[in-house]
């Protein structure tokens, strides 16, 4: 088990390196000069050159690259061009907001999705089944930013039940709409998957055996069927974490949420290279860690899987 984890982590190193390198290449060929953006509209070429030198942008590309890799190995992601904030600090403060959003969205999605999926499977072809699956497929098909706007229109601007956009730590009212917006898609996917897995499991022999032994239906479903049906569901939760981070870019933009996603978009527009690299590397690491956790958690759910 331990060696498996170590191996997986070692395997992540070249992937991270690839991500880092691609970001670096993209940022060297992207038009738009960060020094220029710092100067604003009117720029004196000489000052421009000095700012570029100060940022290390006048070095040959390969030197910039090796310098960047060296710093990265030391855990130093640099300092934002735009506001002098240390990239690591910025990520830490913003990640809190993103994490809270993503976590509650995932909790909501898992609870709602599994519940709806199980009930749909047990009551297959019922009205509940049809309407739940219709809502689910609509949820998958609607653009996340539009869902957010629709919720704002209804609950904030029309009914005035929630305050609208913004982020006030500790004030849960500001969390409701962004969490729902971000949670809709994973909830829908989880519901659909849970339903189909449950249907498959419910036809298996051991369920029939369990039923024939006279176990109560609820116990059959909860203890036997659900446990087995959950294995693929856990996978999808893992992959959803990655999608959630991508979706967070739009959700955070709409709800003016000071998270990593919005930070990344702002950095890209401002050509704030250190911040762009930082956010992308950070998100890639989160993605890989989430996948690793999914892999490991298989072992707990399904003892048949061995790590060798």
């Amino acid at each position: 088990m331990f060696s498996y984890i170590v191996r997986k982590m070692l395997y992540a190193v070249p992937v991270i390196w690839g991500v880092v390198t691609i970001v670096f290449i993209l940022m060297t060929i992207v038009p738009g000069d960060p020094a220029r953006l710092m100067m604003g509209q009117r720029g004196d070429p000489e000052t421009l050159a000095r700012i570029r030198a100060d940022l290390g942008l006048d070095l040959p590309i390969h030197k910039q690259y090796t310098r960047f890799l060296k710093d990265l190995v030391k855990g130093d992601l640099g300092v934002s061009y735009r506001n002098n904030e240390k990239v690591v600090d910025a990520l830490m403060t913003r990640f809190g907001a993103t994490l809270k959003l993503a976590f509650w969205a995932m909790v909501l999605a898992a609870l709602l999705g599994i519940l709806a999926g199980v009930v749909s499977a047990v009551k297959q072809y019922s009205i509940f089944d049809y309407s739940a699956m219709f809502i689910a497929i609509s949820g998958i098909s609607a653009p996340v930013f539009w869902v957010g706007l629709l919720l704002l229109l209804i609950f904030a601007y029309t009914l005035h039940l929630v305050p609208g956009v913004g982020y006030v730590p500790g004030d849960w009212r500001y969390f409701i709409l962004p969490v729902i917006t971000l949670g809709v898609r994973p909830a829908a996917l989880i519901a659909r998957l849970t339903r189909s897995c449950m249907l498959e499991v419910l036809t298996q022999d051991y369920i029939r055996t369990a039923r024939s032994k006279g176990l109560r239906e609820r116990i059959v479903i909860m203890r036997h069927a659900l446990k087995n049906a959950l294995i693929p569901v856990v996978t999808i939760i893992g992959t959803q974490v990655a999608e959630l981070l991508s979706g967070a870019v739009l959700t955070e933009t709409i709800f003016a949420w000071p998270g990593v996603g919005r930070l990344a978009v702002e950095a890209l527009i401002a050509r704030d290279f250190p911040m762009i690299r930082g956010t992308v590397i950070f998100m890639a690491v989160i993605f890989l860690v989430a996948n690793l956790i999914v892999d490991i958690s298989y072992g707990f759910i399904d003892p048949r899987i061995r790590y060798d």
């Binding site: 738009g32 953006l37 050509r271």
Partner: peptide
């Protein structure tokens, strides 16, 4: 265009 690209092209 992004502000950065816009400035670039203009100047």
């Amino acid at each position: 265009l992004d502000w950065g690209v816009h400035l670039d092209l203009c100047e």
